[in-house]
Design a protein around this nucleic acid. Structure first.
Length: 190
DNA sequence: GGAACGATTGAT
DNA sequence: TCAATCGTTCCT
């Protein structure tokens, strides 16, 4: 297990989105470690009409323009948080939305956070995994290399990557910037 | 100052 | 298919 570093994130957003598949999101909590294998991502570029960064920098999307390897957590629909990893060099916006993970460790804690027992529904959506991990606005703009929330790789690929249109957006909807592990049951929408 | 809307989810 | 629910952004 090797922790992903700044160099990994300081690259083209689409490339990072693809290579994040099969890596492990790890959060150290006082009650134990939460681990989820990333099985679904979406890429959001600076000039992408679907991206928050499209109309330039604002107080909310500021982290997207910041250094790579940091978190961008935003609140949406009045009740949900979504977790992104910032990509590209400082000054250029870019982020990868983590849309789904496969529960690996700390499952009882995730079940408690989600108030739900069914493994399949625990983390198979962007706002579901943040709820399972307890990720909220306190995690916005934190350094994912130096804090309790990290991403690790084992360097092995034993799955096929599928590609599709992104979900839940209206403008720029035809771009194939969603990536997921083929046949993985924890992908939000296969 | 006001209004429209959203990178969603869960229940009906 | 639809309500829940509120911060952000854009318009006046």
């Amino acid at each position: 297990m090797k922790k992903l570093n700044y160099n990994f994130f300081n690259r083209n957003t689409t490339k990072v989105a693809k290579e994040l598949l099969g890596t492990f999101l790890v959060l150290k909590t006082s009650k134990g470690k939460l681990i989820g294998k990333i099985v679904e991502t979406e890429a959001y570029h600076e000039k992408d009409p679907a991206s928050h960064s499209f109309r330039g920098i604002t107080p909310r999307n500021k982290p997207m323009f910041g250094p790579p390897g940091f978190a961008y957590v935003y609140f949406t629909y009045g009740m949900h948080y979504c977790f992104n990893v910032v990509t590209e060099r400082t000054g250029k916006a870019g982020a990868v939305l983590i849309r789904a993970v496969e529960p690996i460790s700390g499952i009882p804690i995730m079940q408690k956070n989600r108030k739900m027992l069914k493994l399949k529904n625990l983390t198979n959506g962007p706002a579901k995994l943040t709820q399972a991990f307890g990720i909220d606005k306190k995690f916005n703009e934190i350094d994912l290399i130096k804090n309790k929330l990290n991403i690790y790789t084992v360097g092995k690929i034993n799955f096929k990557i599928a590609r599709s249109k992104r979900i839940g957006i209206s403008t720029g909807a035809n771009a194939l910037l969603r990536f997921y592990i083929k046949d993985n049951p924890f992908v939000s929408k296969p």
